[in-house]
Write a protein that binds this DNA or RNA. Structure first.
Lengths: 231, 231
DNA sequence: ACCTGAACACCGTTCAAGT
DNA sequence: ACCTGAACACCGTTCAAGT
């Protein structure tokens, strides 16, 4: 038999890319985006800042790796049953909740697309678009529109949550913004003043899903129109 | 007659909030987001970094002011005629182009909503939603969905443009990503592989507008359905 | 009232030196 | 092969001192 491998005696607290990424996620979640510092990370990992650079090229790569990891976990947690329409809604809610729980992920997704994280979402949505019966180039258009909308709204929702201190609750925050909207100049902001009351009563997640339904209705409508003229 | 006002003799190169914001926009456009530095800004304005703090509270306020200014100019440049549908498309293209020309604006809009810049867009879109005949709480939902989609896609489009060096042209870039997509694992990314060819041929702006039309179709559909059951 | 610029408390990143 | 931590070249922001 071979002599015992070095792997077997590897200590659990040895540095590794995975441990670094996990620690980075904890730091980002706990302290916010400015909390992720090579010095803070090094302290948490009981080492010096230079050690991290052996496993990770730079801060940008670290952020990308953290995003990929969180999105992968999110996607893994969503079952693929139900109708395509329902599956898309569930994926949408999954992304919405993930960005809400990890606000730094939003900046990462909207600023660095074409990356693995975004591709994972695009792939899952795309399969459901196919299942919906969409064909040809409309598949790409429909999936793109859905992914863009889902990420766009989720990022903005998470950003809203960060504007105010966590101590202020949601209802109070909305009441405040609503009051601001009502106080706007009547000549410059007639529409915004009109819907100020609706802002106050609105439910972020419900509005978000209503938007998803709007796009799905549009997709279904286009498919039907095409089908009619095509047959 | 009153003695000549001090205003009349005010030198053109005196520091002012407006001049600072303009210089910041130039710096952001020319050097990118990391190029905006209080030291660089001070050099451009022929003064010390401390002087800027007399007119602007901090960097965050400076970025907000720069965003508001750019959006205001963009909105002022869009005429309000044509059908509501066409007006919404023009507003969408205006925002798309503005973020494309000033990529830093995207980060600002998606990370700091409820601000003046976003409100200006929301207001203009909202009026057209009203003109479209949408009523009640659907006004808020529809306008929110449109604004979220428009900003979300525009930000992602601008981010794509920054991934590659400006020397690489668009067709070459798309061909490269398309090839990457085709090389993806067949089991993990079946959909993405399928639409890789469409990515290559696609037209950002056209896809973007197709998405806007999708949402508008959804809005029209909901309004019709409501109208039918309501009368 | 407004401007100056040195100084403070940080950053990301590098790199000789260690094991 | 991997880790250490001092050092470098920056940041945003403050503030005594000037005009």
């Amino acid at each position: 038999m071979a002599k015992p491998t070095r792997g077997a005696e590897r200590r659990e607290d040895a540095l590794s890319r995975d441990r670094i990424v996990d620690a980075a996620i904890q730091l980002l979640d706990g302290e916010g985006e400015p909390g992720l510092t090579f010095r803070a990370l090094a302290t948490r990992l009981a080492t010096g800042p230079g050690a991290i650079y052996w496993h990770v090229a730079n801060k940008s790569e670290l952020l990308t790796a953290a995003s990929d990891a969180v999105v992968a976990r999110t996607m893994a947690g969503i079952g693929a049953h139900a109708t395509p329409h329902e599956a898309i809604r569930r994926l949408a809610v999954g992304v919405f909740d993930a960005i809400d729980a990890h606000p730094w992920l939003g900046a990462q997704l909207s600023l660095a697309p074409w990356r693995t994280a975004m591709l994972q979402i695009f792939e899952r949505i795309g399969r459901q678009v196919q299942a919906l019966g969409v064909r040809g180039s409309a598949q790409f258009t429909s999936a793109s529109a859905l992914v863009s909308y889902i990420i766009g709204v989720s990022v903005q929702n998470a950003a809203n949550g960060r504007v105010v201190a966590p101590s202020v609750d949601r209802a109070e925050f909305l009441a405040r913004v609503s009051a601001q909207w009502k106080a706007l100049d009547a000549h410059e902001y007639p529409f915004t003043r009109t819907v100020a009351t609706q802002l106050r009563e609105h439910d972020d997640l419900a509005e978000f899903l209503a938007g998803v339904d709007l796009i799905l209705a549009g997709i279904a409508g286009s498919a039907k129109r095409r089908g009619r003229t095509g047959s």
